[in-house]
């Protein structure tokens, strides 16, 4: 007995919107970064599931998710480097305290 496609899609949608929620509500920059990872991984799940269930004859979704994993890693590397630099300059990475520039 195999799990139908909709189940996977529900999981990925929940992951995506948890990520969006976390991005908006978290105050720690690293936690925001984790939420971003959640968003990107939801997308990967989507791609793989669509490919596996709907278009088993091709590999496009798989390739897309591989590229997206790679790019997400690069993105995290840059973001963490910048966050470390924020910490060096201000001794804090809480978004409610990193606010030199505001309206």
């Amino acid at each position: 007995m195999s799990i139908p496609m909709e189940f996977y899609l529900v999981v990925s949608t929940i992951m995506f919107f948890t990520g969006v929620y976390g991005f908006i509500t978290r105050h720690n920059m690293l936690a925001i970064l984790m939420s971003l990872e959640l968003i990107l991984n939801a997308v990967n799940v989507n791609f793989v599931v669509f490919n596996r269930f709907l278009f088993p004859g091709q590999m496009e979704g798989m390739f897309f998710s591989i590229f997206s994993i790679g790019v997400a890693a690069a993105e995290t590397a840059v973001a963490i480097a910048i966050i470390i630099n924020v910490f060096r300059n201000m001794k804090k990475i809480d978004t409610s305290e990193v606010k030199n520039m505001k309206y």
């Binding site: 920059m29 925001i32 970064l33 971003l36 973001a79 910048i82 924020v86 201000m90 030199n100 520039m101």
Partner: peptide, 12 residues
């Protein structure tokens, strides 16, 4: 500090 703050905001 302004530059890195802007960088963090932008990358996120």
């Amino acid at each position: 500090s302004e530059s890195v703050e802007a960088g963090a905001k932008f990358i996120l």
